[in-house]
Design a protein around this nucleic acid. Structure first.
Lengths: 157, 157
DNA sequence: CCCATATCGTTCGTGTACGCACGATGCCAC
DNA sequence: GTGGCATCGTGCGTACACGAACGATATGGG
């Protein structure tokens, strides 16, 4: 009984004499970014052409395809994952035979990563679908809005 | 030896006779959304005022603060989490005494969730910092750009 | 009334994501 | 040189995120 204290039931807490809009979770950047990211991931999974490859695995492989060989930490910086996360991503890619590793001959702390032949083949196949994934994700927007969104996101990253 | 097959080392794969820009991971919506979401989460953690509350826990509590009582599934739909994710979020909030639950008297399948008195107190405290979190996240943008971004994100969610 | 279908909450498995602490290695100033 | 400090990779703990499968309950059509 004591737990249902007096609570106004019928007005959505507008408060404030100033004209500031009410605080709604649905209007907050963080919330919208989470939802948008969820949708983008879902589209990726259905459209990239291999349901077992995740967005982060994909970006890691694409980066390894550009550079021939990268240390784990550097790869992590390039794709925006911290080293603990990178650890798991690389382990899974290695377990599937998509990525190879060897100690860096010039620095014993580092491990150099590269795509296996199979990894290269898969990456090139997935790269064909990459543009379609982005296109589908941006579909609700006009061409101009799409450019704007990419621009604004770049600024806050 | 056999693994370093012929690979052009010096040009970033522009290809294509058409003027289409090269495909760069850094320019894809999904990638930018992931990075932007990471940054937003980091800002949330440092600015919301309680390092133990996550963004999803926060939005759940705010929603429970608006509506008095909600079933777990409905809450999940309102904050955009599937039921499996909701499960864990609610369990943790309950373990900390922030959320209470009781069986729905009208539907034995449902569990009704509500904030405890402590949960209400914490939510109201965090709500004071909510606007600052969004403000900080949007700081790199002008006022007009901020509005644009929220608008565009709403459209693709 | 009863059965097909849908919804609700749970559980399991996998994968990001990050803080923290650790040991090994590299590097630079002294 | 060597000692202090940074960097690299690893391991552990916690938390989101979701698909899939499951049992219990609800509902609507026949």
């Amino acid at each position: 009984m004591r737990s249902n204290v007096a609570k106004k039931q019928h007005e959505p807490k507008s408060a404030s004499s100033t004209a500031s809009r009410p605080y709604r979770i649905e209007d907050q950047v963080g919330y919208l970014l989470r939802r948008a990211h969820q949708r983008a991931s879902a589209i990726f999974q259905t459209s990239i052409g291999d349901p077992n490859i995740t967005p982060t695995q994909y970006s890691s492989m694409v980066k390894l395809n550009e550079y021939n060989e990268l240390s784990q930490n550097l790869l992590g910086r390039l794709v925006g994952m911290d080293k603990a996360t990178m650890q798991g991503v690389v382990r899974r890619l290695r377990e599937r035979g998509l990525v190879d590793s060897r100690p860096d001959p010039g620095d014993a702390r580092r491990t150099l990563l590269s795509l296996t032949t199979e990894g290269q083949k898969l990456t090139n196949k997935l790269l064909l679908n990459g543009p379609a994934v982005s296109r589908e994700t941006l579909k609700p927007l006009t061409a101009q809005e799409q450019k704007q969104l990419l621009d604004l996101l770049s600024k806050i990253v």
